[in-house]
């Protein structure tokens, strides 16, 4: 079973991102789960979302998770949220930041020695989508880091998930995914 934890602020699209990923993965015949921790706090509050992916039907309903991937889509959460909670030795971190990987590790020492990737999903989403919704670029980065799907395949699959949106928005998301895919380090 593959497990993913998203760190986000409410409104940044982590739940939509997690569900979009689940949609794409489900189309390959795998079993998926996408959920989130909700509190009463509104837009802007730190929150977490989760994915599970497996070849078997997913029976596990515990919220507790030892993630294979931790996706941080808001730059500030690297410093304020417990992003390393319940980590494994093999846990991979993909972190939204404008810093280089080195600068990031210096600014957040607890990430040192871990398998960390950086990508500026915030800037990418501003440039492509025009709004700070960093979920789509993070999925692009995840594809690159995990090798889960080829970029083409994933983009086509995401087009179907986004089918209800205007073409302009779909195109912007595709551009965001591609840029992050190429830029993640």
């Amino acid at each position: 079973m593959l497990e993913i934890r998203w760190h986000s602020r409410a409104g940044q699209g982590a739940v939509t991102g997690a569900k979009g990923l689940a949609d794409v993965v489900a189309n390959t015949g795998k079993f998926v789960q996408a959920f989130a921790f909700y509190g009463s706090a509104k837009r802007g509050a730190a929150m977490t979302a989760y994915n599970r992916v497996d070849d078997q039907p997913i029976l596990n309903h515990e919220k507790f998770m030892r993630p294979d991937y931790v996706l941080v889509i808001d730059p500030g959460l690297t410093y304020t949220a417990d992003i390393t909670a319940n980590e494994k030795e093999s846990t991979k971190y993909i972190i939204t930041t404008h810093l280089s990987k080195e600068e990031l590790l210096n600014s957040q020492p607890k990430l040192q020695g871990k398998d960390v990737y950086v990508v500026d999903c915030m800037q990418i989403s501003l440039d492509t989508i025009g709004r700070a919704i960093p979920n789509a670029p993070m999925l692009g980065a995840l594809m690159k880091v995990s090798g889960m799907f080829e970029l083409d395949y994933f983009q086509n699959a995401m087009k179907k998930v986004l089918a209800k949106f205007p073409q302009k928005i779909i195109d912007a998301n595709m551009a965001a995914i591609e840029r992050a895919y190429n830029e993640v380090k």
Binding site: A18, K19, A22, A26, F31, V32, Q33, A34, F35, A36, Y38, P57, I58, H61, K63
Partner: peptide, 12 residues
């Protein structure tokens, strides 16, 4: 159905 754990959890 269980609140959130089922109601807000997307599955196949």
């Amino acid at each position: 159905q269980d609140g959130f754990i089922c109601s807000h959890t997307a599955q196949n």
